[in-house]
Design a protein around this nucleic acid. Sequence first.
DNA 1: GCCAACGTTGGC
DNA 2: GCCAACGTTGGC
Length: 134
Amino acid sequence: MQYWLIKSEPDAWSWDNQVKEGVSMWDGVRNYQARNNLKKMKKGDLCFFYHSVSERSIVGIVKVVKEYYPDPTDETGKFVVVDVRPKKKLKKPISLDQIKKEKKLKDIALIKQSRLSVMPLKKSEWSLILKMSL
DNA sequence: GCCAACGTTGGC
DNA sequence: GCCAACGTTGGC
């Protein structure tokens, strides 16, 4: 069981869109490192759903329900998607500021590699963020 | 294979 | 809206 964080601009695809849609493809990834992370996702893995740009906060959790397959929106055939389904909305969204303030989270890719859109989290990091949302 | 030019992401 | 950071493209 692995933990992840995936980012989306809420103007393009928001948590509310995800809830309305139920199961959906996580498409549009066009970066090799992010793609490689998508390929490592296993059925049942959990991902924090992060709103970038305008909100800059983690708003919910989605579950991987189908492992990677080719991204139908990618003409080159190089990129992949996974299917995800909303699992839980966070009671309190966790802002980027809060994450930055937490010393134990200073090394996560969200901060170190701000442009990466799909990144792994350690279990300890996952648990800490979960705790912060209570 | 190098690297300049260019495009995109995302924080501020 | 700006721009720094960074990834990708393409000419050489």
